[in-house]
Design a protein around this nucleic acid. Structure first.
Length: 498
RNA sequence: GGCGCAUUGGUGUAGUCGGCUAACACGCUGCCCUCUCAAGGCAGAGAUCACGGGUUCGAGUCCCGUAUGCGCUACCA
């Protein structure tokens, strides 16, 4: 049977990078094995699910290049089928009606309340099978239901035995039934619950392999029980190590903000290829090579569940240092992609960035196309994100640009004579014909000798005058790119800043 | 509290059947290159492989225990 996997996020917020990685691994697995990668939106929690989140998830997946097969499935649309499945289990004696009135939830610290209750129960040797309605004669159960008494439907977990399954990452797993509660399948208002919905949909969609976060490892035992009760074969499972924050705690939007949102990386100038590459390596590594820079095709070719780690991965970043707003290796990898990608693949991204910041001119794609490509080629080598093209790189595309203050101090204010030298140099360069990297270099060096100053003084001052920056490509390359007229004008204008 | 999972330099990881003087990448330091900064090249610092026992001629690798972290333990997903 051919492979069918699914990515099943719940639309209760932006797409978390951990979830994105889960999607990526599913996608890689399907593409590698020629299977299908399906997408299901788990929107059964109607209070928390939003259309905006769904859109954000779709956008994020599209950005990463994770195309899905077949129709998008909304879990909420299948609620009737889930209810029917619960009723089938009820009829088959694999589930029972629980008439216990619904507990009032103390909204505060849900997790803590659960832990406390579990502790109390453990102390008194609580029996998971103690529910008084578990063995209610079916006639009485039917009668009370018919009379309109509200009830939840619970799975009737057998008293003796254990669930077992083989996890492709964590190995053989087993859990005694005694450890598993008679979980609720249907709420007393008829609403199907997570574990039931997931299993029903996975059966319906013909899912063969479930690849998901390790936080579901213990849930899986419950789901195996549901598969059995439904008389369906369980799929294969593979659980993924979690991605942790630098303090090895949970990585959450609440605490860590936008670094955990996938769209942040798109919005802050990451190349999708670079981020996909980085994400793939967070919890997985190729078996047969030490290669780290991997294209989409490389990833597909190299991917296997065997290369997935068991230990959680720390996503490293420093909230107090803007230069380390996200993992340094991710930043490095993005820079690596920016400087090594074939130019033709990079320029569309640069164009989009320039358009977004109002720096794009149509000529860049027509008459000035060669110039545009040369410029991108010249400046991309020291950029980390696409944002740098409109930031540090602004002066190449527009005449209004900011001067970096440190650069002005270092290269212009340092030498008062520049106030006269710069306009004089401008006059000198205005005579150069033709004007290119070689001729401008010869002219500048001759000018420096003539005036008894080091060429480096004029070179560094020139770079700041022309680009507003302290760093950049070779000065003479910059002269050639900016052109004579603009170079001369900027040299003169910069004299004011000395 | 119970159950489960994990634990190799700051981070991501490699270490197949036990032979490691513990490998690679990011980051860090220095040098070279040089008009700056990157890139690139070279060199280097940084790990008694969580801790304690055991098995063995020999353990990062196998076994037991402890600690720490994380997950689950809901009529949340």
């Amino acid at each position: 049977m051919s492979i069918r996997v699914r990515f099943a996020p719940s639309p209760t917020g932006y797409l978390h990078i951990g979830a994105a990685r889960t999607g990526l691994y599913n996608w890689l697995y399907a593409r590698k094995l020629g299977g299908k990668f399906l997408l299901r939106i788990e929107d059964t929690d109607l209070q928390r699910s939003t259309d905006e989140s769904t859109r954000s998830i779709l956008e994020g997946l599209a950005w990463l290049g994770l195309d899905y097969d077949e129709e998008l499935v909304f879990q909420s649309a299948n609620a009737d089928k889930h209810r029917a499945a619960a009723l089938r289990m009820l009829a088959a004696g694999r589930a029972y009606r629980d008439f216990t009135p619904k507990e009032e939830r103390s909204d505060k610290n849900v997790k803590q309340a659960i832990a406390e209750r579990a502790r109390d129960r453990a102390e008194e040797g609580f029996d998971m099978r103690a529910n008084p309605y578990r063995d209610l004669p079916s006639a009485e159960s039917e009668a009370r239901a018919a009379a309109g008494e509200p009830f939840a439907v619970r799975l009737k977990v057998p008293r003796e035995g254990r669930t077992e399954f083989m996890d492709a990452v964590y190995g053989p797993q087993a859990r005694a039934y005694a450890e598993i509660e008679d979980l609720v399948l249907l709420r007393s208002d008829g609403h199907p619950l997570y574990n039931l919905s997931v299993v029903c949909d996975d059966i319906e969609m013909g899912i063969t392999d479930i690849i998901r976060g390790q936080d579901h490892l213990t849930n899986t035992h419950k789901q195996v029980l549901i598969y059995e009760a439904l008389g369906a074969p369980a799929p294969r499972f593979a659980h993924l190590p979690l991605i942790l924050a630098p303090n090895k705690g949970k990585l959450s939007k609440r605490k860590h903000g936008e670094v955990v949102s996938l769209t942040t990386y798109r919005d802050r100038g990451f190349l999708p290829d670079a981020f996909r590459n980085f994400l793939a390596l967070l919890g997985w590594s190729p078996q047969q090579s030490e290669q780290e820079i991997m294209s989409r095709a490389d990833l597909i070719a190299q991917f296997s569940l065997a290369g997935i780690h068991r230990a959680p991965a720390v996503f490293n970043f420093n909230e107090t240092d803007p230069r380390q707003w996200t993992d340094q290796k991710a930043l490095w990898m993005n820079a690596e992609y920016i400087r090594t990608l074939p130019l033709a693949e990079l320029t569309p991204f640069v164009r989009a960035e320039l358009e977004a910041s109002g720096l794009w001119r149509p000529e860049f794609a027509t008459d000035e196309r060669a110039w545009f490509e040369q410029t991108v080629e010249a400046i991309r080598h020291r950029f980390f994100t696409l944002k740098d093209f409109s930031g540090q790189g602004r002066a190449y595309f527009a005449d209004e640009f900011e001067f970096d203050e440190a650069a002005v101090t270092k290269n212009l204010k340092k030498e008062p004579r520049l106030k006269e030298l710069l306009p004089a140099l401008a006059d000198h360069l205005a005579q150069v014909e033709p004007f290119n990297a070689e001729t401008s270099e010869a002219a500048l060096r001759a000018f420096a000798d003539e005036h008894g100053v080091k060429a480096g003084l004029l070179i560094n001052a020139g770079r700041t005058a022309l680009t507003g920056q302290a760093v950049g490509p070779s000065m003479f390359e910059v002269f050639a790119l900016i052109g004579r007229a603009r170079s001369v004008a900027r040299l003169r204008a910069a004299a004011e800043r000395v």
